[in-house]
Computed example of a mutant assay.
Amino acid sequence: MNKALFTTKEAAELLGVSKAFLERDRWAGARVPFIKVGSRAVRYRLSDLESYIERQIRHSTSEVA
C-alpha cells in the first residue's frame, strides 16, 4: 500500500482539477479529505483521493449527488 502524501498541486493534477478548486473545497467544508501537517502544510492521501473519485460516479446526469 502506498502511503505517500500528495501536495495540493499533485492532488489537483491527479483529479484533473485546479489547485484553486481544492483550496476552495477545504474552505467550504472539504468534500476531498486532507491532512494538515504542521500549522500550514496540507497533504492528501492517495486512498482518500481514490475514494473521492469513487463517490463521484453517477449513472445519469439527473442523479442528485
Rank of each mutant, 00 (worst) to 15 (best):
I53H: 01
A4C: 07
A30M: 02
R55M: 07
I53K: 13
K3F: 14
H59I: 05
Y44D: 01
L14N: 00
Y52P: 00
E23I: 11
D25V: 01
V42H: 02
Y52M: 01
V42R: 04
S51K: 14
A4V: 08
V17I: 11
I35H: 10
G16K: 08
R55S: 13
L14Q: 04
L46Q: 13
R43K: 10
E50L: 12
T7F: 06
R31N: 07
Y44W: 10
A28Y: 14
R45P: 06
M1I: 10
H59K: 11
W27R: 06
Y44E: 01
F21W: 14
E10Y: 05
A65S: 11
R43Y: 09
S62N: 15
D48R: 06
L46P: 02
L46S: 04
V64A: 11
A30D: 04
S62D: 15
S18H: 13
R26H: 02
A30K: 10
V42I: 12
V64G: 06
F34Y: 15
A20D: 14
A65I: 12
R24P: 00
M1L: 11
E54F: 04
F6E: 00
K36E: 05
K19N: 15
A20G: 09
R40Q: 14
R58C: 11
M1F: 14
K19I: 09
A4L: 10
F34L: 02
F21V: 04
R24I: 02
K19R: 15
E13S: 07
L22R: 06
A30Y: 07
L46M: 14
R26S: 01
K3M: 14
L5M: 11
I57S: 00
F21P: 01
D25F: 04
S47K: 12
R45Q: 12
V64Q: 11
T61Y: 15
V17T: 09
S62R: 15
R43L: 01
E50S: 02
E63P: 05
E50T: 01
S60I: 06
L5W: 13
V37D: 12
E54K: 11
A41L: 13
T7Y: 08
L49W: 09
R43S: 03
V32Y: 05
L22G: 00
N2K: 13
T61A: 13
A12H: 09
E13R: 10
R43A: 04
E63F: 08
L15Q: 06
A4P: 02
V17M: 05
E23H: 07
A11E: 03
R58S: 13
H59A: 02
V37W: 09
R45C: 08
K3V: 10
R58N: 10
L14E: 06
I35G: 01
R31Q: 11
R31K: 12
T8C: 03
R43C: 04
V42L: 02
S60A: 13
L46N: 03
L5G: 08
A28W: 12
S39G: 13
A41C: 09
F34C: 03
I53V: 11
A4E: 14
D48G: 02
L14H: 05
V37A: 07
R24N: 11
L15K: 05
V37S: 08
I35D: 02
S62Q: 15
S60T: 12
L49M: 03
V42T: 06
K36P: 00
T7M: 05
V17L: 04
